[in-house]
Design a protein around this nucleic acid. Structure first.
Lengths: 133, 133
DNA sequence: ATGCACCCTGTAGTCACTACAGGGTCAAGG
DNA sequence: CCTTGACCCTGTAGTGACTACAGGGTGCAT
């Protein structure tokens, strides 16, 4: 399996696959006579794991930890749970922030009568000291 | 007003104020005899505008556009409205993504019995091909 | 033999800052 | 007058997670 097929199979860019190798998430594969990377099913599994983790919003560092835990099958699952719960808490905080943001934006936009900038409520809402800059 | 007081008044780091100047959001202020930056109320207004915009999630580029529009008080407010609506659409898309993410995470976490990694549902959920890497 | 798609390494760019390193300035206290 | 310490200056490099080349090599079909 060349890097191109692996990338296609996992919906990843070729450059990103090489980058995962560089930062140590993906082990260096064997090379062909022409120095092409040759991947096996193990690599496909590992890269799929990484991509799924990224899609769920885990950082690369968190995925590195999860991979290390997953490789040690005897270990208790508690640390995995801790990482996942911390991430969920993070996501929920961002969600709250964005929700507040959206409602502020909606309020600001609703007030715009679309006259001249001098009377624009959006510009005013952005100018906490009263006057636009 | 020195850069320190301006930064404090706007809840901004000193380095960030200098950075806004470098990228052209904040005009270069007068200098003291000892080469310190000296700011007036105009700068305070403009920096407040920038910070409020950032707090509402506008990109620096969007704020640059908004500032240019705000400086031209005769112009119609339509472009301001367009930028704000585009941004709101962006925020709402992110919100939907995060909502989906959070529910996926909650489901994954709920299934973890916290036994050994070999049986961990979280690791399994991250391994789309069945087996953990 | 030649075109073309694919692969290689290495570097620089993205965004919005943040963090120094290595110095200069200024006001207060001794 | 001298020192201490808080503040300021410029310039460069680092963050996260890639992305985008530049400049070259490989492999296969025509």
């Amino acid at each position: 399996m060349t890097i191109g097929s692996l990338a296609e199979a996992t919906q990843t860019r070729v450059e990103t696959v090489r980058w995962y190798e560089k930062v140590g998430l993906l082990p260096p594969p064997a090379r062909s006579s022409g120095n092409y990377r040759l991947y096996g099913p193990e690599h496909l599994r590992r890269l799929s794991f990484i991509r799924r983790g990224r899609a769920l919003g885990f950082t690369v560092e968190q995925i590195r930890d999860l991979l290390a835990l997953a490789d040690d099958r005897e270990r208790s699952c508690g640390e995995v749970d801790t990482i996942a719960r911390a991430h969920l808490a993070d996501v929920e905080r961002k969600l709250a922030d964005l929700t507040r943001l959206a409602s502020e934006l909606r309020e600001v936009i609703g007030q715009c009568g679309c006259g001249s900038v001098a009377d624009c409520r959006i510009i005013e809402a952005l100018s906490p000291l009263g006057e636009p800059a």
